[in-house]
Design a protein around this nucleic acid. Structure first.
Lengths: 138, 138
DNA sequence: ATCTAAATCTCCAGAGACTAGAGCTATGGA
DNA sequence: TCCATAGCTCTAGTCTCTGGAGATTTAGAT
């Protein structure tokens, strides 16, 4: 039987976050010790590791909840799990594209500025003030 | 003199967001009409466009506040403005790198799953359960 | 058995950057 | 003059935690 602190150390999920996941219904309410402290077993450890991993991949709580619900029915087809992951992959790709555009824009702004002149002439400030100095649409 | 709605239309910043920016001290409290409605001038339009542009680039409120403070002193050197933009560029690049790793991982997971088999054997679910199936560290 | 320090409990507030709603008032055009 | 639209303030909710207050439990040392 693990305390919440043990579970935290083993999974890398902080203690208040574990309690938060319980509140959100991602993990079952734990058994309690005589003194009302949470006590966990191997199963809980696995479940939490699953959640941690999914969060690391950027899946949100709702998606994780859904995946957990799916995994409770091992004999159904896995189309939905596939869809959740594929959708997420798509949104990650979209984010990357957006950030790349930002990167270009910021690169251009920064490259014009060596920090040596006055605010008045600073390309950073001027770029922000005047959208016309931008290349692309954003 | 523009109403808050006019300002919103011209800058693409939503009305409640404009009020929020006022509350956060990014824009000066506007003059008011007899009936207590906000009235704006060209200056305010420019300021808000500046903020909008900076937000589009992903700068946070604190950074924008700093840039605004800097731009109030046009004859000082612009080293800080340069630094803010350069720092942000760095953090954008870091985010891109992280997301690319996610992308790879998700790609790998999804490519193993065609949605046609059962949850029990689903690579999506199995990957999440077993970190050992992952390539890299994350 | 007793003491103490660390861990845990619950509950509440805050982070960031808005967004939405309730309930009321002002404005502008027919 | 009427009425729809737009505006006002204030509060609360979003999402995923994170941190603190103040009380209690636990584990280990004496």
């Amino acid at each position: 039987m693990l305390s919440i602190g043990d579970l935290s150390k083993r999974t890398g999920v902080k203690v208040p976050t574990i309690r938060y996941y319980e509140q959100m219904g991602l993990i079952d309410a734990a058994e309690r010790s005589e003194g009302n402290q949470r006590r966990y077993e191997r199963q809980d450890l696995e479940r939490l590791a699953f959640i941690r991993h999914a969060r690391d991949l950027g899946l949100d709580i709702a998606a994780i909840r859904e995946l957990i619900a799916l995994s409770a029915h091992p004999h159904q087809p896995c189309g939905n799990a596939d869809r959740i992951a594929a959708d997420h992959l798509k949104s990650v790709r979209t984010k990357i594209e957006k950030l790349k555009k930002l990167e270009e824009e910021l690169e251009r702004i920064v490259s014009h500025c060596d920090g040596g002149h006055s605010i008045e002439d600073c390309y950073v400030i001027r770029s922000l003030s005047d959208h016309g100095l931008c290349d692309g649409e954003h």
